[in-house]
């Protein structure tokens, strides 16, 4: 039997799906209303899953007193109430799709020192969610 622990966080941010690699007409065709130049926002819900041995002294895989401030510092503070395209450096170069956002969040959280980051799942809306797992580093909608 193996045990994992999942914690849920929330942040609100805006983005615009647009790439300079495509013409204006192609951007409009590919991204539709998501390419509106002023951007639009979502209430993102992030699930962070960690795994590893349960410490017999604490009963924990990792102390939430460590995980919460780590996620706060790495993801919530830099992303919450921000325009991702303009205010998060990584999205100057790549489209701020939630696939790319999931990869970026995974990259930022992977260095959590007290347990293995097994998976993250991000819900852009209640209808769309994206997951990235440690093994395959595979994004699926």
């Amino acid at each position: 039997m193996r045990v994992s622990l999942t914690r849920r966080y929330r942040f609100a941010a805006s983005h615009r799906l647009y790439t300079t690699k495509l013409s204006e007409a192609e951007n409009k065709r590919v991204y539709g209303k998501c390419s509106n130049p002023y951007g639009h926002g979502h209430n993102y819900v992030l699930q962070v899953t960690i795994s590893g041995p349960v410490d017999s002294a604490t009963g924990m895989i990792a102390n939430l007193g460590e995980l919460d401030p780590f996620v706060q510092r790495e993801v919530i503070e830099p992303f919450d109430q921000k325009f991702l395209n303009e205010e998060v450096g990584e999205f100057r170069e790549q489209v701020a799709t939630t696939e790319n956002l999931a990869r970026e969040i995974f990259r930022r959280l992977k260095s959590f020192p007290s347990a293995r980051l097994e998976r993250i799942r991000i819900e852009e809306t209640s209808k769309n969610s994206f997951e990235i797992a440690d093994e395959a580093e595979e994004v699926r909608a």
């Binding site: 039997m1 045990v3 622990l5 999942t6 914690r7 849920r8 966080y9 939430l64």
Partner: peptide, 11 residues
């Protein structure tokens, strides 16, 4: 709580 869960799965 809605914000915290643990999963047990087979090895």
């Amino acid at each position: 709580s809605p914000d915290l869960f643990a999963d047990c799965t087979a090895d």
